[in-house]
Design a protein around this nucleic acid. Sequence first.
DNA 1: CGCCTGGTTGACACGTATCAATAATTGTGG
DNA 2: CCACAATTATTGATACGTGTCAACCAGGCG
Lengths: 252, 252
Amino acid sequence: MSSSSCLIKKLSHYVELSQHDRDLLQDLEKSSTAVSAGTHLREGGQAYDDLFVLSEGWLYSFTILPDGRRQVLQVFVPGDIVGIYDTPFAHATHDLAAATDAVVCPFPKDGLDPIFSESPALTGLMFTFALIDQAVFLDRLRALGRMDAVTRVGHFLFTVISRLRLTDHDTENGHYFPLTQSDVADATGLTNVSVSKAASVLREKGFAKWSNRRLTILDETRLVEFASFINRYENIDISWFPQPGRLHLGRS
Amino acid sequence: MSSSSCLIKKLSHYVELSQHDRDLLQDLEKSSTAVSAGTHLREGGQAYDDLFVLSEGWLYSFTILPDGRRQVLQVFVPGDIVGIYDTPFAHATHDLAAATDAVVCPFPKDGLDPIFSESPALTGLMFTFALIDQAVFLDRLRALGRMDAVTRVGHFLFTVISRLRLTDHDTENGHYFPLTQSDVADATGLTNVSVSKAASVLREKGFAKWSNRRLTILDETRLVEFASFINRYENIDISWFPQPGRLHLGRS
DNA sequence: CGCCTGGTTGACACGTATCAATAATTGTGG
DNA sequence: CCACAATTATTGATACGTGTCAACCAGGCG
């Protein structure tokens, strides 16, 4: 069942993919490897070999500072392609670790070539998601620069949820959310203690409930307002998008 | 003289451009408009029309928070293409203002089409610079999340200098650096007061001298170490790069 | 059942914000 | 070219939010 691939689900969010597009994507997930929680998958500054599709579980990229503290940069959830943003660099830009047990599908650096050469639609989608991610990073930069602890945590939780919704429909019970409070602290530039206190405030205010690896947004409207959150996955302009016979990244 | 274009200088940094490539780039700067310091060029959330090449002067993108404070997100210097990262969005993602008097060269959204369809080299370069910028944003995220005031300011100053060096060769007198301490404060998530104090520390330590709109790096080795700065413009892997007859983003 | 990881809570320390007064620099009009 | 105004930078006193440290609690797994 190709519809079980989270990558295909994610990329189907904005446009209807052709069967050929689906086949191309399916090819990326031909081989798979299981990794257990805590595995250090890649080290920043070192050579890296394959990219991979994250098929199950969560990963995160991070760096360690000279004093040993950690900054979490990006959280990867099923359907994400990991390592694609390192392509122009000679070495991996960041460390990478598994937040949970996970299944990854490695493919060589040039594994994307068929996609670029055969599918304008997928090429455009890759480009689009890269720029969406960039906007999300800038929103997080804003949050770290100018927001207080409670707002930062609220903003970050929503950032992750908005990404999850591409592949995972919201349920009454909220989402599976396996990050620890220390993980969130390292993503938001806080400490586990502050995150704990921020989480209680969010609960008291009725914005969100987060416990036992489950996160539920209780009052989305007010939380979005509170954290001045912008969902960068919405309001995507499809009109510039490569149509069959238009923009095309391929071999000449 | 096409060699006077900062955009061409910037893009020539990694590969030798053909005359055709230079012509394509030159076309982007056909028309130009002067804007004066402080002009608010674009508002986040509003529709935007043209992209432009920044030909002279400095701009910055920013957002205003609900309490009125400002977060500066990106600094644009001559040679940068402004607005290219908004292409997939229906509205401008951020506000944009002129830090100095500037000259911008507007072109319509589809003005890049000839570049994508006719020059694999330029297409690859655009992609490369987008991912370099992304790495720089993540390094700044790390700095805002986990570094103290002095380190943050040192890191940010170096971030801008490393970009300037693509078009501007270092001189004994350092670089023209027109940002105010309030601008740097809003970029680093600090206040003008903290930036002032951080600047004195950097001067005392002999790392950098910054006054009267000039910035000079005095001890680069030690400053890079101190701020754990990584120059993302270095160590670019050209090998994957579109060769004539290889990877090609064009009209089929 | 008991260990181990993760979460909660409170007391105190520390770095940066805030406020305010002054100095230096840049820009402007006579 | 000078004089004045406006902007920008410096410096010090105090306030406040988050870090740090530490003790305790809860849940999951062997």
